[in-house]
Amino acid sequence: MTIRGIKKDLLLLLLELGKNSHPNEFAALLKEDAGVISELNLLPGTITGSSSASIFFDMMPLGTHRAGSAHSHPNGVLRPSNADINFFPRAGKFHIIIGAPYRENDWKCFTADGEPCDLEVIP
């Protein structure tokens, strides 16, 4: 699977989810269609708090279009924690961190091994 970008509407929704969840984190899984991340799944049973969010992998939908994950960092730090690095490989290849104050540029994408990567925003 080659991911070439993320839909702008989805990115704006992720930023809004971060803002609405603040001061707690949120977590979601991302789905792609034809190489574009275009949907999210909020899983039942997800646990959120001010310093973490936990997804129950038993609740992950079946399918081959899982692209990765998105979650927020209410502290505004746009880099993965050690817990994130351990989580990323289980959830997919691309991972978006949304940070306070949740403006249009308050996000970064990372590979499953925690390396920053560019992701085009597609109108």
Rank of each mutant, 00 (worst) to 15 (best):
L29I: 13
E39C: 06
R4M: 14
S72P: 08
T2L: 09
A91V: 00
P23C: 01
F88T: 04
Y102F: 09
L78D: 13
I96V: 05
M1C: 11
G99Q: 02
F56D: 14
I98V: 12
P74W: 02
V77S: 10
G45Y: 03
T48Y: 07
L78R: 14
F87A: 07
W107T: 04
D33Y: 14
P89T: 02
I122A: 03
F110A: 04
E32H: 11
L40H: 14
L10G: 04
V121F: 06
K19S: 10
P74L: 00
G92I: 08
D84K: 01
I122D: 02
G35M: 02
F110P: 05
E32L: 02
P80K: 00
R90G: 08
I97E: 04
V36Q: 02
E120F: 04
N105H: 13
F56T: 07
G63C: 08
D113Q: 13
G68M: 02
P116K: 09
L43F: 07
R66Q: 15
R66C: 09
T64N: 14
N75A: 10
C117N: 07
S38V: 09
T46N: 04
I37L: 01
V77W: 08
S69D: 05
M59P: 11
I37F: 01
K8S: 09
A28L: 06
E32I: 05
K93L: 08
I6S: 00
D58S: 07
G92N: 08
H73P: 03
A112S: 13
N105L: 07
H95Q: 14
K8I: 06
L40V: 10
A100N: 14
I55A: 11
L119E: 11
A91R: 01
N20M: 10
A28P: 06
